[in-house]
Simulated scan of single mutants.
Amino acid sequence: MLSATAAAVALVAGTLVGATTAQAAAPPPPSIAALGDSISQAFDACGYKACPTYSWSTGSVASVNSHASRLRAAGATSLAVTNNSVVGAVAAALPAQAQLAVAQRAQYVTIQIGANDACTTTVAGMTPTAAFEASVLAAITAVNTGQPTAKIFVASIPNLKRMWEVSKGKAGARLVWAAGRICQSMLAKPTSTAAADVARRDQVQARANEFNAALARVCTPARNCTFDGNAVANYVFTSSQISVLDYFHPSIAGQAKIAEITWPLTPYGAP
């Protein structure tokens, strides 16, 4: 027999599941703000630069069909759009970005952060999981406090090891990764099968997995916050969905795929 506490938890869980199943899509908000790093800036999607018009979150290019584009199609014809994400940002920068979203009175805030916390020069330089979690908590709390009615969507970190696997055999990728010093914690010695290098890559991916678990822990109990359930982390990106400029960031097709797989999970994309 369930204890009183367990029964109460089960009742609440069942109620929430039922409510979620029956819930219709929320009315589109008047404003959206993106927080995060180069992924939300669509870095290297249209050249060696940030390409925010191709962003999965706030982009305006039709082929991407971003969250912003979908909100407009749902009726938010005067949608105010801001992209506060920054190329190279780590989780420690997220609270300041959240404060910007509050000042902008954003009613829908997307967050994707963590790749740069794992993509460091060395494994030792990766952000500790506890510090990462504290930064994300501070950011979500800032939005909850400053804009209590704003809805927050948190996207998981793509599988970094998958990005390595897709392109490690390409000479161009190996050249760019070495010359640009891209994510060396994962991408150094990309063809090496030495035990130390295999272990290093596994350690980096394990930290990214820890970050995703932290995103879920922070978002799930927060007001109006939805985590993607590792939809992005579990998605198996193909070669065409990765930029041929750095063989690591999502291409235009990759940005479109992130928008596609995350949109149904948002309060606005519910069936």
Rank of each mutant, 00 (worst) to 15 (best):
L160A: 09
D197E: 14
Q203M: 07
G169F: 10
S156R: 00
R200M: 10
I182E: 15
I157D: 04
P158H: 05
K151N: 15
N144W: 09
T193G: 04
A194R: 14
A195K: 09
M163G: 06
A188T: 02
K168I: 02
K151C: 04
G180T: 11
Q184C: 00
V143G: 07
M186L: 06
G172W: 12
T141Q: 10
P158Q: 12
K161L: 14
A195H: 05
D202M: 06
C183E: 07
N144I: 09
A199S: 14
K168L: 02
S156H: 04
I152G: 00
C183S: 09
R174Y: 06
M186F: 00
M186S: 00
L175H: 10
R174P: 04
P190S: 02
M186Y: 00
A150I: 02
I182Y: 13
K189H: 13
M163T: 08
R200C: 04
A171I: 07
I182H: 13
P158G: 09
T141C: 01
A195Q: 10
P148R: 14
A150G: 05
K168Y: 14
R200N: 08
A155F: 00
G169A: 08
V166P: 06
Q184D: 01
I182K: 13
P190Y: 01
A195G: 11
R200K: 10
L187F: 14
K168N: 10
Q203K: 13
I157Y: 05
S167N: 13
G169D: 13
Q203E: 11
K161W: 10
A195D: 12
A199Y: 02
V204S: 02
G180P: 03
V154Y: 00
D202Y: 04
A188R: 03
V154C: 03
G146Y: 08
A178V: 05
N159S: 12
A194S: 10
W164H: 15
V198S: 12
I182P: 06
E165S: 15
V176K: 11
V166E: 07
N159C: 09
A179Q: 14
M186N: 01
E165M: 11
T145G: 04
R162A: 08
I157C: 04
A171P: 01
Q203N: 14
R162Y: 04
A188F: 02
P148G: 15
T149H: 11
M163Q: 14
A173H: 02
W177V: 03
T193P: 01
Q184N: 06
L160C: 05
A194H: 05
G169T: 07
I182F: 15
S156A: 09
W164P: 02
S167T: 15
A150N: 01
Q184Y: 01
D202C: 05
L175G: 07
Q147Y: 05
V154F: 01
Q184E: 07
T141H: 04
T193I: 04
P158R: 02
A150Y: 12
K170C: 07
A171D: 08
S192K: 07
K189C: 09
T145K: 10
G172A: 15
A199F: 09
R200P: 05
K189E: 15
Q184L: 10
G172R: 08
V166L: 08
S185T: 08
A173F: 01
L175M: 09
I157N: 11
L160P: 00
S167F: 13
T191H: 01
